[in-house]
Write a protein that binds this DNA or RNA. Sequence first.
RNA 1: CGGGGCUUGGCGCAGUCUGGUAGCGCACCUGGUUUGGGACCAGGGGGUCGCAGGUUCGAGUCCUGCAGCCCCGACCA
Length: 455
Amino acid sequence: MSSPQSQSQRMSNYFLPTLKETPSEAQIVSHRLMLRAGMVRQSAAGLYSWLPLGLKALRKIETIVREEQAKAGAIEMLMPTLQSADIWRESGRYEDYGKEMLRITDRHGRDLLYGPTNEELITQIFRDNVVSYKDLPKNLYHIQWKFRDEIRPRFGVMRGREFLMKDGYSFDIDEASARTAYYKMFLAYLRSFRRMGLKAMPVAADTGPIGGDLSHEFIILAETGESEVFCHSDILDLPVPEAELMGDDTGDLAPLIESFTQYYARSDEMHDSAMFEAQVPADKQVTARGIEVGHIFYFGQKYSTAMKALVAGPDGKDTAVHSGSYGIGISRLVGGIIEASHDDDGIVWPWAVAPFHVGLINLKPGHEGCDALCARLFDTLSQNGLDVLYDDRDERAGAKFSTMDLIGLPWQAVIGPRGAEGQEVEIKNRATGEKHVLALDAAIALLSSPPESAQ
RNA sequence: CGGGGCUUGGCGCAGUCUGGUAGCGCACCUGGUUUGGGACCAGGGGGUCGCAGGUUCGAGUCCUGCAGCCCCGACCA
């Protein structure tokens, strides 16, 4: 009964194994809630199966990233999870990477590895297929599972060993145009995180051997964040520039970027307290905890030189391309969003990444009036393109309310015998707890857009 | 990888010190009563007690080895 684009579900047909009690291994709130809400199950240290509800949230985040990458001109592709060790030997990282890299030998005795990142592979693809500056610039990305054999995986999906990441790579003829590529991604990241309902702050990051000012981490603020961040409070309230501001003529992106980078913002590893005190007025100094959800950096000719990714310039001479890489931790974001948005009763999903928009509760399945009104609401919302999770189980009211609060869908629509009588629906805003009793049409109108507080 | 802890039914736990053939709550099944914030009564199903050795008439319990998982630290998207 739902439209093709809607992914509405009846709970009686769904797979949503919720838990009343928290499994003992989960310590932080997002991990606890993801287990209790039936989003993931752990299969081994740092490895998780994504159950239907968790997968839906993951896919929504993925879609936002994909759309914003497209707007910024990046092109999607897909590279394999396993890579040949040969290209890593070429770049010199096979030896350097250490035990974090999972090394595998196939039946022929060839050395493979489960990719922790893809600079080598993309560089190989690039050099084999692009030979002229006329084909530049290019920005290629993929969204793929990675593996890093962390010494100590923890925090659920926030620091698993296997993780879903969007990683993109830009290729430019010189540093100036590479800088433009970097700026575009900087802005695309701000927009992506804002769409997910997050306040993400770009902080200066270590540029390593390359130097320069082109490396930023994007941090979302959450009390349980892994690192401490120090910033000027104004950076938190800067408006995020719209995509329309970014045509192909991007010569003047620098001022936009500077509107962010002019403020002091650093995580603990780069923090300089003397500089902080000097640059930020006391009443604007913010110290908080955050979770890194993205990292962009320019690495120049590091891989292109080592791996001979050369293109002919206008003068006919070969030069190594200038590259940058741009990562977003997609699976980590699921945990990060929950860290940033929950309460004592459960998750509070921002509209854009909620697994379903509306949780519909039938207080009395089998009651003719309730069933009919629920069916009408379910069908209409679904046909309007909304994702509805319909609790049609034969459970007590309290159990349904608790489950719905736990999984945290932005809107709850409750229909019981009382309301069915008058064709009325009780609507609850999950974030604020605010309730309204509305006639069917008014309820449909309200449920069709985000609750204000979730925007 | 250093330090600490844990492993008993799907989940949370007791039982281990002091050896005697496994228990509680939740969940699940059946029947009944309930029915707007995780109900109640009665009955029921489900566990080679992480694995492998050993001691013993007898091991969840004692000994040895191994594995898995969690926490703190160092490291990281």
